[in-house]
Write a protein that binds this DNA or RNA. Structure first.
Lengths: 255, 255
DNA sequence: TGTTGACCTTGACGTTGCGTAAAGGTGTAT
DNA sequence: ATACACCTTTACGCAACGTCAAGGTCAACA
């Protein structure tokens, strides 16, 4: 497959200007130039662009990216593994920030207290690294541990809150499900409400939700004795009933 | 508490130049200037800076941030809720990108196939929005649904793999735990191995791990009949035993 | 066949969000 | 009194493009 600037730009979600700039600075040159002077990119460039965007996503400068990807010993898989690690770290950062926003909301709505330091957790990226370099052990033992402790404490809080909400939801699901079983109609209002509650419950553990995955989980409930035993505890057949309700709720199974 | 430039900069993890620049463009002016011309920030500025950094984290331009935070009807809590929503969206993006890297690794190591389009999932930020505006329904029904389907398919894959690994781990935990129960020693080698396996299992559902949270969950196992029933199924007292093992493993309880 | 209209090209200047001197004043501890 | 870590303003630099401007290309349709 060959691409002109605009086609590749659309594919990658960047601008044509960016592609021309990348050509200009020699980081991504087209495979060839056609008779009209158009830039034509082919497979190798698509893959290289993907790599470049991975690096860029991590905040690396284009000059550095250039030296890396044009290096003769460039190991794509190794680079990808490093990307993976960095992205996971970034997610931890992001989760910290999200926890921080949640805490700030609770704070401004007048609840918990919050120190000035806490207000900025999640923003400091390499701060700890830099502190390490500058002040060495002395500060790490004091400040570093404090940071770790605070971050852990936050997790503790989150877990507790989550736990409370989750158990409340769990009970609600069980009750709704018990009521719904009486109607014997997995497409009925009650059963569908149970399915929706179950979706809410699910989003506590998965932060990506999709109908297919939800339906897949419903299937697991019936196949996996562990889950089946839990749902069938009060009333046998509950797991199957929930599965039917979810399949209908997600639209995987009609009627 | 009052802060000079450097103190506030350190607190927030930014440079002093940034603070002076924010003063210059009128986005964050110090509470007062002291007799020597030093910028002095106080509580209100700390909170405002936090808000500014939240907005900045979302890629918003300083000029736009200015109009928002200096608006007379600026509603901090509402803004925070929007931050929260945006950050959650960003996490979905990030997870997509992580899935993409994982898939690319599997692809280059010679396994699964990958279309050019798939290579760029996770990079396109508001692309779908923009496409919507530009090309309307016709493209959405084709391209939009494809994107959604692909993203869901990926989740499906992830879920399947996760499920297989998770069930394997679950079994290993159960078996190790059964063996460990015979030793009657929660500090013993087998029990500690079970605790470690349990940690691995846990990281499938939480991507942030902390000893405290792990210990907290162990406590839940005993208090929540749902979990307790599962672990005590084969052998009563297993839940308590696991809790003890985890408390020791995490170092929360000594000996 | 001509003329839209969506492509493509190369300049070239503008913008954002700071980094980084340079040149100098302040505060306080030794 | 002198060192040293602060603070100030001014000003130029830079990365990674955005945004015209002025013009050539290509497929389709009247």
């Amino acid at each position: 497959m060959e691409y002109t600037v605009q086609k590749l730009a659309r594919l990658a979600g960047i601008s044509t200007r960016t592609l021309r700039y990348y050509d200009e600075i020699g980081i991504l040159k087209p495979a060839r130039i056609n008779s009209s002077g158009y830039r034509i990119y082919s497979q190798a460039e698509v893959d290289l662009l993907q790599q470049i965007l991975f690096f860029r996503e991590l905040g690396m400068g284009l000059e550095q990216i250039k030296t890396i990807v044009t290096a003769p010993a460039f190991d794509a898989v190794k680079a990808l593994r490093e990307h993976h690690q960095k992205l996971l770290e970034k997610r931890v950062q992001l989760d910290l920030l999200i926890a921080n926003v949640e805490k700030t909301i609770a704070h401004t709505e007048g609840g918990i207290e919050m120190t000035d330091q806490e207000k900025f957790t999640g923003f400091k990226k390499k701060m700890i690294d830099e502190n390490e370099k500058k002040y060495g052990k002395e500060i790490r033992e004091k400040y570093g541990n404090e940071t770790v402790d605070r971050s852990n404490a936050k997790l503790q809080n989150m877990t507790k809150e989550q736990y409370e909400e989750v158990t409340a939801l769990s009970e609600e699901i069980t009750q709704t499900l018990a009521e719904a079983m009486k109607t014997e109609d997995p497409a009925g209002e009650l059963a569908q409400k149970a399915a929706e509650l179950h979706k809410e419950w699910l989003t506590f553990f998965w932060h990506e939700y999709s109908k297919e995955a939800h339906a897949g989980l419903a299937q697991m409930y019936v196949e996996d004795e562990r889950f089946k035993a839990y749902y069938d505890k009060e009333q046998p057949g509950t797991a199957e009933f929930l599965r039917e309700a979810i399949l209908i709720y997600t639209g995987i199974q009609k009627k």
